[in-house]
Design a protein around this nucleic acid. Structure first.
Lengths: 67, 67
DNA sequence: AACAAATGTGCAATATAGTGCACTATTGTT
DNA sequence: AACAATAGTGCACTATATTGCACATTTGTT
C-alpha cells in the first residue's frame, strides 16, 4: 500500500499546501509530512481524516488470487 | 469503512480462532478483539498484518463521485 | 444441566503515534 | 543572487495504541 505519493499528488491537484491540508483535517502539519513520506505508522482515524479531506477512500476488501 | 465484521467473517471462513489469528499475525489477542468489535483505533501496520494473514487488502484510492 | 472452547472486559504497564516549537532545506519567482 | 513560500527534521511532551494477566461472559456440545 503506497499511500504517501497518492496523498501528496492528490493534495497538489487540489492546490493545497501541507499547512492547509492539516488545518482542514484537524491534524498537525507534522503528521501530514510523516505520512506523505511514509515514515511512521498512522492510525486508521488519521488516515481517514486525510482521505475524506482529499476525496480519497480507505477500503478493506478480499484480495483476489489474480493480483 | 466497516472492517470489524469483514475481519470476523473472513477469520471464521478460514476456520481460525482469535487466538490462532493473533499468533499468525504476531499481534495480541486483545488487539484482535478490539479490532473485530471496532473499538479503538488501530494503526496501518496492525491492520495490514491482519489483512495479509486473512487474504484481505487495505487500499487507498480516489473516491468516485457516484458512490 | 454440565462442561469446554471461544470470546469479551478491567486494569496497569510499555511502546509509540501525534503535537508544537524552532530551525534547516528545498523550491520557485523576480 | 536574493527573497518568499513551501516542505523536511530534532527534540521533548502528551495522548493513546498495544500488551499481558486474570477473570467474566457467551456459545456450542453431550
Amino acid at each position: 500500500m503506497k499511500y504517501g505519493d497518492l496523498i501528496k499528488e492528490r493534495r497538489s491537484i487540489l492546490g493545497l499546501t501541507q499547512q492547509e491540508l492539516s488545518d482542514y483535517c484537524g491534524l498537525s502539519v507534522r503528521i501530514i509530512k510523516s505520512i506523505e513520506s511514509e515514515k511512521g505508522n498512522p492510525s486508521l482515524k488519521t488516515m481517514e481524516k486525510i482521505a475524506e479531506t482529499l476525496g480519497l477512500e480507505l477500503i478493506l476488501k478480499v484480495k483476489l488470487p489474480n493480483e
